[in-house]
């Protein structure tokens, strides 16, 4: 019977689709076409080009003489300056990401309470995220941290001789890290949205069980918002490894390369030395490192991220 039915269906002649039908069926493609064009031309093509260049000695003004070499990748892991930049970048990311997340969550938690003028504070805390990479902030930061700047002047009132924040290699990275942590606004807004979504009845239940505010925070709030913490962790990690503006506008990578992040070195290699091959290789190494960290973060999810649609 089924066989017969199939044969009958097959026997029905297929109606040829009109141009109008094809257009209607594929209208979605027309909508994504501008994006697709942009993606292919401005993302995929440059990425493919840079992958190719990373295996060459391509220099903007000397051209390309060697193709298919691994020398750039060997140099990335053997050149002192690049290895130092990688170490500084790791240090920078591992200092700023946790600090920024903790700070953003803490402020979001406070701003989630019904306090007077809360909208003003939310806006005020978000502003640094907008201004972070501007030249004006660089000037401000230098005015605060220079030897006779605001910070050392304040420390001087308490009889403390402040260090040379900008010129001492042991402190300069701290200044750059602080700039990043200060720009916690965007992460804060996301946390704030997540906090708003925590069901109130869970707090009520916890309160009935005798949980105080801190216990409620660590045993109710944090577990519920772990997906958002995870999201912020991944995005902040990516942004930290790609950070460029802070060291570029404040210290130019100095003193003694103590704030030279890999992104700054890529820029210098590409646009000061015109060594596009080496710059591309560094960029790809950075890409792979970032990918590894992101994969680790995703794999770790099952141990600490709670999704409400999961069983148990």
């Amino acid at each position: 019977m089924a066989k017969k039915s199939n044969a009958a269906v097959a026997a029905i002649p297929k109606k040829k689709k009109s141009f109008k039908d094809i257009c209607r069926d594929n209208i979605g493609f027309f909508f994504v076409l501008p994006w697709l064009f942009g993606f292919l031309v401005f993302k995929l093509w440059p990425m493919a080009s840079s992958l190719f260049y990373s295996f060459t000695d391509y220099n903007l003004f000397k051209g390309m003489n060697v193709i298919g070499t691994l020398q750039n990748y060997i140099d990335v892991f053997t050149t002192r300056k690049i290895v130092t930049a990688l170490q500084v970048t790791f240090k920078y990311a591992f200092i700023t990401v946790p600090l920024k997340l903790v700070f953003a969550l803490f402020i979001a938690y406070i701003l989630n309470f019904k306090i007077k003028g809360v909208n003003f504070f939310r806006t005020a805390y978000y502003i640094p995220s907008i201004l972070g990479g501007s030249v004006a902030i660089a000037v401000l930061w230098k005015a605060v941290f220079r030897d006779d700047g605001l910070l050392n002047t304040v420390l001087g009132f308490f009889g403390i001789a402040g260090p040379s924040w900008l010129s001492d290699p042991d402190y300069a990275l701290f200044v750059i890290c602080l700039l990043r942590v200060w720009q916690f606004g965007s992460a804060m807004v996301i946390f704030l949205a997540a906090l708003k979504g925590v069901p109130q009845d869970l707090y009520e239940a916890a309160a009935i069980d005798g949980a105080g505010k801190w216990r409620q925070f660590f045993s109710v709030t944090v577990p519920i918002i772990t997906p958002v913490i995870f999201y912020n962790l991944v995005t902040q990690l990516c942004q930290a490894f790609q950070e460029f503006n802070g060291p570029y506008i404040i210290t130019q990578g100095g003193p003694r390369n103590s704030t030279t992040l890999i992104s700054l070195l890529i820029y210098n290699s590409a646009f000061k030395q015109y060594d596009m091959g080496m710059a591309s290789a560094m960029a790809w190494v950075m890409f792979v490192i970032l990918m590894i960290f992101t994969i680790i973060a995703f794999l770790s999810q099952k141990y600490w991220v709670f999704y409400s649609d999961e069983e148990g």
Binding site: K142, A143, F145, R146, D147, G149, S164, W165, L166, S167, D168, G254, P255
Partner: peptide, 8 residues
């Protein structure tokens, strides 16, 4: 050089 850098 550190002194000049410290001038910001």
């Amino acid at each position: 050089i550190a002194t000049i850098a410290g001038d910001g």
